[in-house]
Computed example of a mutant assay.
Amino acid sequence: MEGHQRNLYLYDRFNARVAGVSRDQVATLEFWAKDLGLEFPIFSNPIGHIGIWFNALQAGYPMFNRTTVIIDKWGVIRYMQPGNPDYRGILTVLKQLHEEEGQR
């Protein structure tokens, strides 16, 4: 999450917004976001529906696998990468989407 916070100014250049999802409760996430200085929303999803939707929840394991997802403004998933974020890959996709938008 801290890496996304550091890159917010770059994401903003491509008109992208960041949101996090966690199975933690809202109060825990509020404390955690404040402690880390996060300026983007983190949504509480204790049941795990979002993790299941993005195939980021392992059967029998109570936590999400880290997954980075980029959804364009039409709701189409344009990038999904499990594991730790690949910031270079994220920025490459955002740049591509920004250029596509400029061509419309």
Rank of each mutant, 00 (worst) to 15 (best):
D12C: 06
W53D: 14
R66M: 03
F54C: 06
T68M: 07
R23M: 07
F14T: 12
L57I: 07
I90G: 11
F64S: 02
Q58L: 14
E101G: 12
F40P: 04
L97E: 09
H49D: 14
H98D: 03
G37M: 05
A56M: 10
I52Q: 14
L8Y: 04
N84I: 07
P85F: 04
V69C: 12
I50F: 02
F40K: 04
V69E: 13
G60P: 07
G83V: 07
Q58F: 10
F31C: 00
F40R: 09
L8T: 08
T92Y: 09
G20D: 05
V18S: 07
W32E: 08
R23T: 02
F43T: 05
A33N: 05
F40N: 09
P82F: 12
F64H: 06
T67D: 07
K73P: 00
I77C: 13
A19D: 00
P41M: 11
P46Y: 10
L57W: 01
P62L: 03
F14H: 15
R66Y: 02
D12E: 15
G48Q: 00
Y87R: 02
N45Q: 03
A27R: 11
Q103W: 11
N55D: 15
E99R: 14
I50W: 04
I77N: 11
R88Y: 14
G37N: 07
F31D: 11
G20Q: 03
N45F: 02
D24Y: 00
R104Q: 13
K34G: 09
Q5P: 11
W53H: 13
Q58V: 13
Q25S: 05
E100M: 14
